[in-house]
Design a protein around this nucleic acid. Sequence first.
DNA 1: TTGAAAGCGCTAACAA
DNA 2: TTGTTAGCGCTTTCAA
Lengths: 331, 331
Amino acid sequence: MAVTIKNVAELAGVSTATVSRVINNEPGIKQLTRDKVLEAITKSGYRVNTIARSLKTSRSKTIGLITPEIANDFFMNIARGAEEFLGRLDYSLIICNTNESIEEETHRAELLIEKSVDGVIIIPSTNSGSHFKILTDAGIPVVFADRLTEDFEADAVVVDNQNGVYMAVSYLIARDKNKIAFIGGSPKLSNARERFEGYKQALKEYGLVIEDQLVLIGNFHVDSGFKLMKQLMELKIPPDQVFIANNFMHMGAIKYLIAGGYKPDNSPRIGSFDDLELSFILGYASVTVAQPVNEIGTQAAELLLQRIEKNRDEAFQVIRLQTDLKIFRMR
Amino acid sequence: MAVTIKNVAELAGVSTATVSRVINNEPGIKQLTRDKVLEAITKSGYRVNTIARSLKTSRSKTIGLITPEIANDFFMNIARGAEEFLGRLDYSLIICNTNESIEEETHRAELLIEKSVDGVIIIPSTNSGSHFKILTDAGIPVVFADRLTEDFEADAVVVDNQNGVYMAVSYLIARDKNKIAFIGGSPKLSNARERFEGYKQALKEYGLVIEDQLVLIGNFHVDSGFKLMKQLMELKIPPDQVFIANNFMHMGAIKYLIAGGYKPDNSPRIGSFDDLELSFILGYASVTVAQPVNEIGTQAAELLLQRIEKNRDEAFQVIRLQTDLKIFRMR
DNA sequence: TTGAAAGCGCTAACAA
DNA sequence: TTGTTAGCGCTTTCAA
């Protein structure tokens, strides 16, 4: 059995309460006593048992992260931001993969309640968030990251998707008003919807008409980008420029262009959301909207901790981070 | 306060012991009693408090994952395999980012002990693993994934790096015996060392000499691949073929080639470890060694659970998964 | 087949 | 400034 506070107390010749006070750095302890206890701690190799502490304090110093996909560069950069912030405050992060399934989201939320997490960061996989109510019902604060849901309100950290796309598409339009296509994501995702709004806003502002056959909706995955770019290139008159609403579809689209033997010079000029590694180098892209990905995670964690540690209980707060327009000189 | 076992007991008119038995699906309970309890549970909205359970059973149903980097596609595919396997058995995964720092590795290990995790999966960031001894000293089993350390033994799941590279480099040699370069990783990583062995083995077998200027050592990151490929291309006589020992350096190398205006036809033919998305399409690569990444995670988790749940305590077991040689027809 | 009760390791009144 | 003590919610012996 491991060393407990009781062993330390005996070794130091004090009560368990005193040991507890020393461990928790409470004031009002004679220096001599403190030293005695500290020495007993090192000698015995004592380590707190946070399980016992949690049972008593009903604080687990653990945060849950519910994500549609673990092996996803984008989501894990959010996780990274959160983990870094939380780690510094000695919180741990439990990661839950949901495979974009609402059942899994519910299941994992239940599991997290049973684990007594202090808060949960959620990257929702759809529009719907009402099943997360069990968390707040259990008194566990929640913050959405990257996406909002329609039927459940909470703190959230997202980026200004609409404006980001608006700027990028405006840039494309300024270069060439002709036939600007859009490869977007499911309207069930708030970020996908907002990005589409940005596209529409730009076209409208420049007096351009939205052509149905130039607006294609995919699922934010590589394959989908591949297929939709194929579809565009097989039109009688392919578009002159294409805005692609996320990194994975962008990757798929470029895969199609390369595989199809389209060189940058005889391909549509591409604008995209998310700053894809290699994208600039490959020569197809002319502009991209970069997100402060890590910061989404950091701020989400911070928002959560305010509710947990500072008992902030004002109205929900939605932080919208600004995106960064990156223009590639090559095209 | 949340509903406890006591509330349920009162509601059902039984003792807390009985409720506990029902929750844990223990046999030897009258069906009628079981039903009464089950009803009380639904009515009251009771949920187990695993913290309290853990304190009593000293089992937290939580596994730690120590990784050099969270936002790393490769490592997170390992995590994904582990999470999936563990999730099905109602274990949770705490993820710890160490930024390739031994101090952080130690710090996180301590934290995990305090959290009473039942086991830890470690992707070590160097050769050295002796600081993980605190885990096993605390009775927490450990399994290494992807890499082994030199000074600490434990169960492990890795791939057959040497053979993988040997096969790929042999393939390159069979096409052209002339000047085959190698871009490898730090000798402080077991996988990097083993991959280098594979290169040497192939060259030796074909009676080729290893030329110092053709063997470059990087750090497995993108920038490093970029620089080292540059270095190779600036040789008086650049190599005809290059084997690159991981996906990120491969990415960097290709970035350099594209940026430098080298077309596939006047670049060295590339072989690589890790099956890089886009790699085949880009046309520079001719062969790659694909790893069963998810399976590394799954098997690591399984090995760990055998120690935890089945009390397996035989000698340490190192599972070596086979790699898959992928040949690209284009080159 | 069930219940009473001890206790896992810690914190936090309260008392001294 | 320190100690005593009552639990936190659960599991598990032991007894009935």
